[in-house]
Design a protein around this nucleic acid. Structure first.
Length: 203
DNA sequence: AGTATGATGGACT
DNA sequence: GTCCATCATACTA
């Protein structure tokens, strides 16, 4: 069952935590690829120095975050990678959740081709873990790029469905990654991951 | 285990 | 011109 707009239309902290265990699916030229979300980060908008939308900064890039919940915010970073977020909260409140890592569930051949240009069977152990254990890696694996920025996750191209129920005691809350510039916000425990999951990007 | 470094280009000022 | 919500590789030990 697909997640509803009501699910997304809440504080990004809640959404980030509850997204753990859900399945992210991309359908693209006849292929279906999907993975279980095992790591997320909340970006809480106007009050969050780490967020692109800090201080309600509204630019062409951040515009999607100001719109309706349940859209994809995909941005290009470090000249090479894409990162996918899910827009949260009501219109005008620019929060989002970054998807940081997936456990492959469906379309492993497609992922292996995208990431390493070889068959899934021929991957080393290291490579199979590296398919989707980071925000840039999972976008490459699932063929998610900026053309999907603004995509409605309630439609049938890129969407999320129910998955495993994760127990509260299996959820770790810790500091976000790669935001050293964010002053006090860099220490907020706004990253969530599933305890002991192999595909988490960073303990 | 850890630490360092280059790749590479768009967004923003 | 500067800054990146990253990753792969190449070291050191």
């Amino acid at each position: 069952m697909k997640l509803t707009k009501e699910f997304y239309e809440r504080d990004s902290l809640l959404v980030a935590e509850e997204l753990l265990g859900k399945i992210l699916v991309h359908e693209t030229n006849g292929e279906v690829v999907g993975g279980k979300i095992v790591e997320t980060e909340a970006y809480r908008g106007a009050i969050d120095k780490a967020a692109h939308s800090y201080n309600n900064k509204r630019t062409l890039r951040t515009e999607v975050m100001f719109g309706e919940a349940g859209r994809a915010y995909v941005y290009f970073i470090y000249g090479m990678y894409n990162c996918m977020n899910i827009v949260c909260e009501k219109v005008g409140n620019p929060q989002a959740v970054l998807i940081r890592a997936l456990e492959p569930v469906e379309g492993m051949e497609f992922m292996a081709k995208n990431r390493f240009n070889k068959s899934y069977e021929s991957l080393s152990k290291r490579e199979s873990i590296n398919l989707s254990n980071g925000p840039g890696k999972l976008c490459k694996a699932l063929a998610i790029d900026r053309t999907l920025n603004g995509e409605n996750l309630l439609d049938n191209r890129l969407y999320l469905v129910e998955g495993d129920k994760i127990n509260k005691e299996d959820i770790i809350a810790t500091k976000r990654v790669g935001i050293d510039y964010a002053e006090e916000a860099k220490d907020f425990l706004w990253r969530f991951y599933i305890k002991d999951n192999t595909y988490v990007s960073k303990k």
